[in-house]
Design a binder for these strands. Structure first.
Ligand code: MN
Ligand code: MN
Ligand code: MN
Ligand code: MN
Lengths: 143, 143
DNA sequence: ACCTATTATTAGTCAAGACTAACTTTGCAA
DNA sequence: TTGCAAAGTTAGTCTTGACTAATAATAGGT
């Protein structure tokens, strides 16, 4: 009943979990703008069907999400046409892209296999603070 | 428009995101059973008010979540009484606790400050595969 | 024993993010 | 040029996980 590590301070722990919930709230946005940027760069445009296929969701889900992104100022779209990033969306995509790439490179540098590094990075990237990202960068550089 | 890294295979990427969504679906469960176990070990019992204070949510939210955990076989509870783990809940808590601890120790070993390591680990832990966890363990051991 | 503060529950609301099913638009190939 | 398959949209539903406000139960101090 005792002899275990003491619990963190209550208020600190609450702050941690509150920040965690905030991170979760931006994950979908981050992954969308990043993939939209990737599609524009490598295929010339971002179509809803490509997002649906790559996220593994239905076109209806993509439609809903794109509307939310538009409401929040990250993308523009017109019915039956492809999706464009706003300046705000492009800026977020660039940041996410860089962070994502560092996390992936870090896992590879640690010796994790390519498939698993790709997969784990997709989740981990959203929970890496600036300080931890620096530590990752540093480890990659030092190797 | 080209000269960028090629996109991953469509089906592979869909599998990655599908697994990511599955991980998200278990995060709350994992954090609850882990904190319930911590409270039982360090304070003798897990009261809803303590969960609410430590997660930074309202008692109503805790009540809803505990009902879901009970429905899913992780805890038992009686009205106005504290919360208990089932064998299944305890087993999950143990696994999460170990994984959580390794992630935290790993970040510390990388040179991340204690506060940030604690905070980042709370999110990262849910997205670390067995292979990556082994790499973390190995890094801690090698230091 | 009884108040009262703390704790817990209930009811009702909301947004995100997923789905299916039905419908519409687009654009290409014959 | 038109017809059909692919792509996109809409409507309706569901679960999770959050909230507030009102109510109920518990327990400790006097
Ligand atoms: Mn990403
Ligand atoms: Mn991601
Ligand atoms: Mn944890
Ligand atoms: Mn966690």
């Amino acid at each position: 009943m005792t002899d275990t590590a003491p619990l963190p301070d209550e208020a600190d722990q609450a702050r941690t979990f509150t920040r965690l919930r905030e991170a979760h709230a931006s994950e979908v946005t981050e992954d969308y703008v990043e993939l939209i940027a990737d599609l524009i760069d490598s295929e010339g445009e971002a179509r809803a069907v490509a997002l649906a296929n790559r996220f593994g969701v239905t076109p209806a889900t993509v439609n809903n999400t794109v509307k939310r992104l538009e409401r929040d100022g990250y993308v523009t779209s017109r019915p039956y046409r492809s999706i464009f990033l706003t300046d705000k969306g492009r800026a977020l995509a660039e940041d996410c892209r860089e962070r994502h790439q560092i996390v992936t490179q870090f896992l590879l540098a640690l010796g994790v296999s390519a498939d698993v590094a790709e997969a784990d990075a997709e989740g981990i990237e959203h929970h890496v603070s600036a300080e931890t990202l620096d530590a990752f960068r540093n480890f990659i550089a030092t190797k």
